[in-house]
Amino acid sequence: MQFPHLQSYYFHTFGENKVDIFLANFMKSLWWKLGSIALLFYTVIAGFLLPVPALPILHESIRNLYFHVPMWFGMIIILTASLVGSLQYLANQNEKHDMLASEAAKTGMLFGALGLATGMCWARYTWGAWWVNDAKLNGAAISMLTYMAYLVLRNSIDEDHKRAKIAAVYNIFAYVMMLVFIMVLPRMTDSLHPGNGGNPGFGKYDLDNNMRMVFYPAIIGWTLLGVWILQLRIRLKKINSHLETNQ
């Protein structure tokens, strides 16, 4: 390995007990990455070829379920990792947790942007407009704004330790507000969005076993891809900060 100091990196993130060491080794292994690739190939091939129920208005655009919805699942899961990083940073002021928080926020925003893009394309062909004034859409847009504000806040502070602490506080606050905005408020109003109008989730599609067979693997595959991107980002950041300090 060209960067021997990186080998100890995962052990720092996870701690020293048995479960953590197992997790650290698992994160370094190849299997979940191969699994992600396999699941995503399956998602794309089966997602476009397997039969879907013929519903009015939606028609074939229902296949967007395999691409659009997993983006939000991935975003929430990765932003939760960011929240965990911030909480851990406040607990023990370890620089690595701040790295996890900031890189996870960026990866989560990538997923959010992709979720918005797939949703907008779908809306154009189903509702006839790129954007409509709807509780779910606005919630998604505002949470993107919140995390952009988080990045601006990070950039506005020079001192490392101070930046990490203040950004962690804002991140925790922002996460709670984001959950309220995308999980609670859309359920209180009527919405054009599928799955809304009283019933949360997407029970209408769940009834179809064919779609379920693609949808669940798709969620796992896209989320694993997000974790992979996050891992690479953290490694890159680690190398860069190492190069900076050892110049």
């Binding site: 505002i142 704004l145 952009m148 601006v152 806040l153 506005s156 203040i166 804002y170 507000m177 905005f181």
Partner: peptide, 22 residues
């Protein structure tokens, strides 16, 4: 938060408005 980070009112608005929305 903003007072620790340079304390300008622009920062206050961009940090505050999105979390105020709900």
């Amino acid at each position: 938060i903003a007072s620790k980070a340079g304390a300008n009112s622009t920062l206050m608005a961009i940090l505050g408005f999105p979390v105020l929305m709900p």
